[in-house]
């Protein structure tokens, strides 16, 4: 499968995504400069974490105007797969490719730690390798992960199975005390109506090797690989 990981000025997880896809999952992956206008030849585009444009003004607010974002929209429109992780998720929201917006964490502090998330649906291209309500242990690292969306939109998203991950206890209970950032209904990851665009705050690329403390992030990579009929090397 051909992956492209977009490099915005200030992205800082693009090399981590590259490493995992290339060295762990043995896939083809290339860096895509934010000024590119075409995404031809890629099957899946990753918008990585980091601080695009320093997160000055507001997370993702400047990056959405990068030339490549028009190409990302076209690519997704034609059914291409797009995953936004952390800052990448924030950019997808700012670009209007996913519904909702981010506020600062309720604790008003950056939080970096492992959390547990529950797989809410297995019928997306991003979660089919997991089982229903499987609990994944994956780290978060963000200052603005407090996901909010108007009630009526949220209702529709739930109806259509667009809520992909929720923060939960190690045993899988979705409770307020396991919500690290105040996001509505403990939401950690969502997809669009068609399911080809995923946004998530936790970093699957940081949990793709046992040596790093968890390989649960592999479920997300394996899902998209098997959805696209690619060989899964591990």
């Amino acid at each position: 499968m051909n992956f492209g990981v977009i490099v915005f000025p200030g992205s800082n997880c693009e090399q981590d995504c590259y490493y995992v896809l290339e060295s762990v999952l043995k896939q083809r992956i290339e860096y895509v400069w934010h000024e590119e206008t075409s995404l031809k030849g890629y099957d899946c585009i990753i918008l990585p974490g980091g601080f695009s444009y320093g997160d000055y003004l507001r997370s993702g607010a400047i990056a959405r105007f990068s030339p490549v974002m028009r190409a990302v929209a076209d690519f997704a429109e034609k059914g291409g797969y797009v995953i936004g992780i952390c800052n990448g998720f924030q950019i997808l929201l700012e670009a209007g490719l996913l519904p909702g917006a981010m506020l600062r964490n309720t604790g008003l502090k950056f939080i970096c730690r492992f959390v547990h998330i529950r797989v809410e649906t297995t019928s997306t291209p991003w979660s089919n390798a997991a089982y229903h309500h499987q609990v994944l242990r994956i780290p978060i690292a963000h200052n603005e992960g407090n996901y909010q969306v108007p009630e009526d939109v949220l209702f529709e998203m739930k109806q259509r199975g667009q809520i992909v991950f929720r923060y939960c206890s190690p045993e899988g209970s979705v409770l307020p005390e396991y919500n690290p950032n105040g996001s509505v209904e403990n939401i950690a990851g969502i997809c669009n109506r068609e399911g080809n665009i995923l946004g998530m705050m936790p970093h699957p690329e940081r949990a793709s090797e046992g040596i790093l403390g968890s390989s649960d992030g592999l479920y997300i990579w394996k899902s998209i690989l098997s959805h696209c009929g690619a060989d899964v090397a591990i």
Binding site: V20, F110, C112, I211, L212
Partner: peptide
């Protein structure tokens, strides 16, 4: 240390709080 991103670059094998930080 939870306010510090101590995992980016995916090298951190022993986290803050251990005797020493270990990086691969």
């Amino acid at each position: 240390f939870e306010q510090y991103d101590h995992m980016v670059q995916v090298n951190t094998v022993a986290y803050p709080g251990s005797d020493a930080a270990i990086l691969r």
